[in-house]
């Protein structure tokens, strides 16, 4: 697949991740608890390869997370080495832990705080991906507190801002 196409898919999945995070902040107590541990204003960025899609966000005391400008320097940045590597993770071919083990991304910032973010992504993956995929990419699939359909529905209605 062409790099531009993969980047486009990555951008769509990042949008789903952002909205999913917002929904789970309200619907899943474990995600809410994780995000509550972050300090207010903590900024995070997911960069999907050089010139690739970017998700830039900060902890928001009301909404859980809110967007920030993509050019802004973040406290924590997970930077994929390639667009293709990011696509493998975002399309559910490989989990975050396996991606780390395969050196698909590197990290700028505090490893300690990043682990909480990784757990949130794994909770989200359990909702967003069908069971046959989440079983393959997660060491243990966390129990869902609400249905995936509800998360998808609310994510569609969620403000992207």
């Amino acid at each position: 697949m062409k790099k531009e196409l993969l980047s486009g898919v990555n951008q769509i999945v990042l949008e789903a991740l952002f909205r999913g995070f917002r929904v789970l902040y309200r619907e899943d107590s474990r995600v809410r608890k994780e995000i509550h541990q972050w300090r207010d204003g903590l900024t995070l960025k997911l960069v999907c390869g050089p010139g690739g899609a970017v998700l830039a966000m900060r902890k928001d005391p009301e909404k859980g997370i809110a967007r920030i400008r993509r050019a802004q320097r973040a406290d924590i940045t997970m930077r994929f080495k390639s667009v293709e590597g990011a696509f493998r993770v975002l399309s559910g071919q490989i989990g975050v832990a396996d991606a780390y083990a395969a050196h698909l991304f590197f990290l700028e910032g505090d490893i300690y705080q990043t682990m909480s973010f990784v757990r949130c992504v794994e909770y989200l993956e359990a909702y967003l991906f069908p069971p046959f995929m989440s079983k393959r990419i997660l060491k243990e699939v966390p129990e869902k507190q609400v249905s995936s359909l509800l998360v998808y529905g609310k994510a569609l209605l969620e403000s992207g801002r």
Binding site: V96, A97, Y100, A101, I111, Y112, Q113, M115, S116, V118, R119, L138, K139, E140
Partner: peptide
């Protein structure tokens, strides 16, 4: 311990 980087590569969650 949960936030330690070693947790992510442990073979079991």
């Amino acid at each position: 311990a949960l936030n330690d980087g070693a947790s992510i590569v442990n073979p079991r969650q």
